[in-house]
Design a protein around this nucleic acid. Structure first.
Length: 602
RNA sequence: GGGCUCGUGGUGCAGCCUGGUUAGCACACUGGACUGUCAAUCCAGAGGUCGCGGGUUCAAAUCCCGUCGAGCCCGCCA
């Protein structure tokens, strides 16, 4: 008989009734301990699960085992024993058996723990990040990281099955134009010059299309020196980066929809998933109906334009701004007539916190209208309001009056808030849509200059002719986002593969020919030797996993995330470097004054 | 860069609004008891510059100011 493996013959999660009688060897962490003096239970945990091990009073190992601290790593050898019927633990996959310990080896002892591993209590994030290796042992985070791996494997399989090829592109590359701040890496060989970490492999994937490859994808790390948010990891994140040659916008949608739909159905555990084709919502319509460029379609409420209801009315707080170009947007609150006064006061207070002067509302009840501004609306105007919003007796309507963009944005937030407050959000569902036809340019309110509103490499709708003739602010791009449950998963575009159009597009944004050549010479030059029409997209992997894991914080699906200040508390990054290293990189530090002891700049 | 919230033994929280006892509870830790538990239980113990600095006061964890740190948000994120 072959000798037994020195560490394990089985995993902690796999023992079942049919293993009864086998002598097994298990290794794992001491998850929990229940000590009855003459019988000691050890719950042993590994990646695969937990199993109960038993030592009885006669065991010479008892004293050693009793003294073990939680999270120590041990190897036990013993016989799998069926539990008595009244001792079965139905909450444990291995609960029908236990292991009668005959041998016990201590592999690694644990100090007293800075955070509990065997409990799911909430812990402050700073503690969790400092001891991430312990946090990762805990069930929730461990499960999320396993899910992440499975999701990525599924995406990769689906992409390859759809005829895409996986590529790698450089991490040390050149600074990209526009967009976020770059992370820079100094060059030792070229004094004063820097590599940049890619904000996305944007130009490389377009170069690959120009190189004659047809369907590119990459699970690509992206680096952006921007501040974090709950749904935005500072520093780095991963994209499913996709690019296709000889495609229209619809071809890109048709390629990505089955992948996303398939992945979500696979991991959504029965939740509803929008079947392809996903709804397409033009940007202008998204702003008008949902007050957002990332509409949450689980929310059934729609914003209505009720400017005409108030135009010329006696409610001067709205009528006066309307006369000079403001608009009024309404959100219906179904059944809100039954809400107490505090409901309306609370929303008004919230709106003021959002920077609005307040939140007008009308309650439709008992065939009439009440509320602070009801008396300003006669029967005709109320009928007009009901027609525009679909409001019926028993509903309320909330109003926002401002310039069009501000009114749309606030109405969008009111829509979200009402959906939540009134419990209208469709549960257990992933609702996808494409938001299309983004404007090519926008006006920077501070500088009054025209800027690219998204990707400067997007193809303007209408091509060169439109660029030359139309008001730039009216030009749309073949630019689109994928949105799921109000989360922006990706943006993408049909690219501008024509140097002549590119020069013109950049000229409108104030970039001269020389500057364009200096900054994207590599790609621009490539387009002068025969470039295919192409386009793609880049859904965020972390956000996909976040949605599937039911998490609202992206750090819950990243094994080793940085905190909001872009520090790695576990590895102590960023950290200082030795003066010799700086010298060979030709770098002298010019630090801000550290008169406050400089404790924030370690 | 700005706004809001938070900071109390190793860990999570209470106490703060309304200043005044020995700063309380749970988990972990140490010792003890216990033949079947599965969040084991019971008894005992150790462990605290109440983030830091200043102020008000007879007296500050508590009130005020400043500062540092964390989270969320705004800015930023082609």
């Amino acid at each position: 008989m072959a000798p037994m493996h020195s560490l394990r013959t089985h995993t902690c999660g796999e023992l079942r009734r049919e293993h009864t009688g086998l002598t097994v060897r298990l290794s794992g962490w001491l998850h929990r301990k229940r000590d009855h003096a003459n019988v000691l239970f050890l719950d042993l945990r590994d990646h695969y699960g937990v199993v109960q091990c038993v030592l009885d009073g006669a065991s010479p190992l008892l004293k050693t085992a009793e003294a073990l601290r939680l999270e120590s790593v041990i190897t036990v050898t013993g016989q799998v024993v069926a539990r008595a019927p009244d001792a079965i633990n139905p909450r444990l996959a291995t609960g029908e058996v236990e292991v009668a310990v005959g041998e016990l080896t201590i592999q690694s002892t644990a100090d007293p723990l800075p955070l509990p591993v065997n409990s799911d209590t909430e812990l402050p994030e700073e503690t969790r990040l400092r001891y991430r290796f312990l946090d990762l042992r805990r069930e929730r985070l461990h499960r999320n990281i396993v899910l992440r791996s499975r999701v990525i494997a599924s995406i990769r399989r689906r992409m390859i099955e759809s005829g895409f090829m996986e590529f790698q592109t450089p991490i040390l590359t050149s600074s990209s134009p526009e967009g976020a701040r770059d992370y820079l890496v100094p060059s030792r060989v070229h004094p004063g010059k820097f590599y940049a970490l890619p904000q996305a492999p944007q130009q490389f994937k377009q170069l690959l299309m120009t190189s004659g490859f047809d369907r590119y994808f990459q699970i690509a790390p992206c680096f952006r020196d921007e501040d974090g948010r709950a749904d935005r990891s500072p520093g780095e994140f991963y994209q499913l980066d996709v690019e296709m040659a000889f495609v229209t916008q619809e071809d890109v949608f048709a390629a990505l929809e089955p992948v996303l739909h398939g992945v979500f159905v696979e991991f959504a555990e029965g939740a509803a998933v929008t079947p392809p084709p996903f709804p397409r919502i033009p940007f202008g319509e998204a702003m008008a109906k949902y007050g957002s460029d990332k509409p949450d379609l689980r929310n059934p409420l729609l914003i209505a334009d009720v400017t005409e209801v108030f135009r010329g009315s006696t409610f001067s707080a709205f009528a006066t701004p309307v006369a000079s170009g403001a608009v009024v947007r309404a959100v219906r609150a179904p059944g809100a007539a039954a809400q107490p006064r505090s409901f309306f006061d609370k929303l008004g207070q919230w709106a003021r916190e959002q920077g609005a002067p307040g939140l007008g509302y009308v309650i439709l009840a008992d065939g009439g209208a009440r509320g602070p501004i009801a008396r300003f609306l006669d029967a005709d105007r109320l009928a007009q309001l009901a027609a525009a919003t679909g409001a019926r007796d028993g509903d309320a309507c909330f109003f926002v009056c401002d310039g069009k963009p501000a009114a749309e944005r606030l109405a969008g937030r009111v829509r979200l808030r009402l959906g939540e407050e009134l419990g209208l959000i469709e549960p257990n569902a992933f609702r996808f849509c494409w938001v299309t036809d983004f404007p090519m340019y926008e006006l920077n309110e501070d500088t009054k200059k025209i800027e690219f509103s998204h990707n400067p490499f997007s193809m303007p709708q209408g091509g060169l002719e439109v660029l030359e003739k139309a008001d730039p602010l009216t030009i749309k791009a073949f630019q689109y986002d994928i949105v799921c449950n109000g989360v922006e998963l990706s943006s993408g575009a049909i690219r501008n593969h024509r140097p002549d159009i590119m020069y013109r597009a950049f000229a409108i944004a104030g970039y001269g020919r020389d500057e364009v050549e200096a900054r994207f010479g590599g790609m621009l030059n490539a387009f002068k030797y025969g470039a295919p029409p192409h386009g793609g997209s880049a859904p965020g992997i972390d956000r996909i996993v976040m949605l599937l894991a039911g998490e609202t914080n992206i750090r819950e699906v990243i094994a080793f995330p940085m905190n909001q200040q872009a520090q790695d508390l576990l590895m102590q990054a960023p950290g200082p470097v030795a003066p010799e290293r700086l010298k060979e990189l030709h770098i002298k530090l010019d630090l801000p004054n550290a008169d406050g002891e400089g404790s924030s700049r370690r």
